[in-house]
């Protein structure tokens, strides 16, 4: 599998490993995991956070997503139930990358069902060993960088695209959200779709699997694009504001007074958020109140 293509198709099963239909612990034939099972796991991984809680995080979702594989490889309800319960404990990673862990665990569960020496502890340890670095790399990439960038692309769409003809509908209302959705999903969908088969194929090399995803490199790239796009947005917003601030040519003082609420609001917010991160809602209400008072005075 090429290291440069982070999400290439899964490799063939590892030579020497029992294939589908290998005898299980009791000598009975154990069906192997099929492609359709991995597709079902992928589709269920979309709901991995549905029972999210502080105590178990995505644990119940992980068990729910893995169920098609457990159904395939374990033959009795009791076996399936026990395997399911094992995966109900704490599990936390980035939801987009959860498919990779699900793929690896699917492979290990398959081998365990086939009677190979794979212990419950080994499965749990592999799960945790993968989940933590994927969360550490995935959260900054998707939550901190890509999601804000996707929103910014939508906002940028509003600034770049001209106003619609007054006779027709303003199509920006459709184009801007589409830009946001496309930006995010161009990256996320690939990880979602290819994650499970990729994890299943590379279950024996978790280190190589993590390296091959190039998450840190992707993050650096999107951070730069994000800053670049924000710079462009500032220019696109300030240009028409400055152009239209003084239509009667009353001078610099008039222009400054028109632009003052925007400039002061930006500068003070940047300073306040440094001191109180995440308080933009409170700052917005305070700014609205101050502007209301000042507008009554002047």
């Amino acid at each position: 599998m090429s290291d440069s293509d982070p999400l290439a198709a899964p490799a063939a099963p590892v030579p020497g490993a029992p294939g589908p239909g290998a005898p299980g612990p009791a000598g009975a034939a154990v069906p192997g995991v099929r492609g359709i099972d991995l597709v079902r796991v992928e589709s269920r991984a979309l709901y991995i956070q549905a029972l999210f809680s502080a105590e178990r995080q995505q644990g119940p979702g992980f068990a729910f997503a893995l169920l098609p594989v457990l159904r395939r490889v374990y033959t009795t309800a009791a076996e399936r139930g026990r395997a399911l319960a094992r995966h109900m404990g704490f599990f936390g990673t980035h939801p987009v990358l959860s498919g990779i862990v699900l793929g690896v665990v699917a492979r290990l569960e398959e081998r365990r069902a086939q009677g190979l020496p794979v212990s419950e502890l080994q499965i749990e340890q592999t799960k945790r060993a993968l989940a933590s670095p994927l969360a550490a790399l995935g959260d900054p990439l998707f939550w901190v960088t890509l999601r804000p960038l996707a929103g910014l692309m939508g906002v940028l769409g509003m600034a770049v695209l001209p106003l619609a003809d007054t006779a027709g509908p303003d199509l920006r209302v459709l184009v801007c959200p589409c830009l946001a959705l496309l930006t995010y999903n161009a990256v996320a969908i690939r990880f979602r779709v290819a994650g499970v088969p990729r994890g299943y194929a590379m279950a024996d090399d978790p280190g190589g699997l993590l390296r091959s995803l190039h998450l840190a490199e992707l993050r650096r790239f999107f951070e730069r694009v994000s800053a670049l796009a924000f710079g462009a947005l500032v220019a696109l917003t300030l240009w028409p504001m400055v152009q239209s601030a003084d239509p009667a040519h009353e001078g610099f003082a008039h222009k400054a007074s028109v632009l003052a609420p925007f400039v002061l609001g930006s500068a003070l917010t940047a300073l306040l958020l440094r001191r109180w991160p995440g308080r933009s809602v409170e700052i917005a209400f305070a700014a609205a109140l101050v502007a209301l008072v000042l507008s009554s005075r002047f």
């Binding site: 933009s280 502007a291 507008s295």
Partner: peptide, 24 residues
């Protein structure tokens, strides 16, 4: 005035997200 102030706050928040947080 209020709109301009809130737009300013929004851009300040955007600066924190897109410019200050990433390296370079």
């Amino acid at each position: 005035w209020i709109f301009a102030a809130i737009l300013g706050v929004a851009f300040g928040a955007g600066f924190q997200t897109h410019v200050r947080a990433p390296r370079h």
